[in-house]
């Protein structure tokens, strides 16, 4: 019961509602701007879209329902952060996978270089001519 009352208080709190509207607006791209979220753009279109967000909030729609409304009209293009599902998960996975592959390649390269360097040093040390020169210099 107390949980329900708390829930109703949060729903009625205009500050929380506006913060939620702002959070939703941060995820949506303004269609007439250069990659700007609708919550930050002063354009009339972005303001109208924020108005739509607030209107849907007032109707009791959830964050996901509001985001879905915009993606049904503008596609996933409208999302400033791509969804972490389906083909789009590839976009999120690519940077860490590329980093991992880079590290593996780097490790293999340095491992291969280490014995070659050791062999070169051993060959120089075993050379009798170089050994004689070293002794001359040290005298």
């Amino acid at each position: 019961m107390s949980f329900l009352v708390a829930l109703l208080l949060v729903a009625a709190d205009p500050v929380s509602a506006e913060a939620e509207a702002h959070a939703i607006g941060q995820r949506l791209r303004c269609p007439v701007c250069q990659g700007m979220p609708i919550s930050e753009s002063p354009s009339e279109m972005a303001q109208a879209m924020m108005g739509k967000v607030r209107e849907m909030q007032a109707e009791g729609k959830s964050r996901e329902q509001i985001i879905d409304y915009f993606t049904q009209r503008y596609g996933d293009w409208v999302l400033l952060d791509p969804r972490k599902e389906g083909v789009l998960i590839f976009l999120w996975a690519l940077p860490p996978v590329a980093l991992l592959v880079g590290l593996i390649v780097l490790r293999r390269y340095t491992k291969r270089q280490a014995p070659a360097k050791a062999t070169r040093v051993a060959a120089v040390a075993a050379d009798p001519y170089l050994d004689a020169v070293r002794r001359e210099v040290e005298q």
């Binding site: 269609p31 007439v32 279109m45 879209m49 739509k52 009209r73 503008y74």
Partner: peptide, 13 residues
């Protein structure tokens, strides 16, 4: 007047 139909159609200009 509220641009609501334009948004419904996904207008970008």
């Amino acid at each position: 007047p509220t641009t609501s139909v334009a948004i419904d159609y996904g207008i970008s200009g």
